Simulated scan of single mutants.
Amino acid sequence: MKIIIQRVNRAKMLVNGNFKCEIGKGIVAYIGITHDDEIKDINYCIDKLINLRIFDDNDGKMNLSIQDIKGELLIVSNFTIYGNTKKGRRPDYLNSAPAERAREIYNLFLEKLFETRVSFGTGEFQEHMEIYSENNGPVNLIIES
Rank of each mutant, 00 (worst) to 15 (best):
N18I: 10
N18L: 13
F19K: 11
K20P: 04
E22T: 01
E22P: 00
I23C: 06
I23E: 04
G24N: 15
K25W: 00
G26Q: 04
I27C: 07
I27T: 13
A29F: 00
Y30Q: 05
Y30R: 04
G32K: 11
D36G: 11
E38P: 00
E38W: 03
I39G: 00
I39H: 04
I39R: 13
D41Y: 13
D41W: 09
N43C: 09
L49R: 08
L49D: 04
L49K: 08
I50Y: 02
I50N: 03
I50K: 04
N51W: 10
N51G: 14
L52E: 09
R53A: 07
R53V: 08
I54D: 10
F55M: 04
F55G: 03
D56G: 00
D56V: 05
D57W: 12
K61S: 08
N63C: 12
N63S: 14
L64F: 09
S65W: 05
D68E: 08
G71T: 09
G71A: 10
E72T: 00
L73Y: 06
V76M: 07
S77G: 04
S77C: 04
F79M: 09
G83S: 15
N84H: 00
N84A: 02
K86T: 10
K87V: 03
R90P: 07
P91C: 06
D92T: 15
Y93L: 13
L94S: 11
S96N: 08
S96A: 15
S96E: 08
S96R: 03
S96T: 11
P98V: 15
P98T: 06
P98A: 10
A99Q: 12
E100W: 03
R101C: 02
A102T: 06
R103V: 01
E104K: 15
I105A: 06
I105T: 11
L108V: 07
F109N: 07
L110V: 13
L110N: 11
E111N: 14
K112W: 02
K112N: 10
E115Y: 05
T116D: 03
R117W: 00
F120P: 00
G121L: 04
G123L: 05
E124F: 01
E124A: 06
E124I: 13
Q126T: 13
Q126I: 07
E127M: 11
H128W: 07
H128C: 09
E130Y: 05
S133E: 14
S133C: 12
S133V: 11
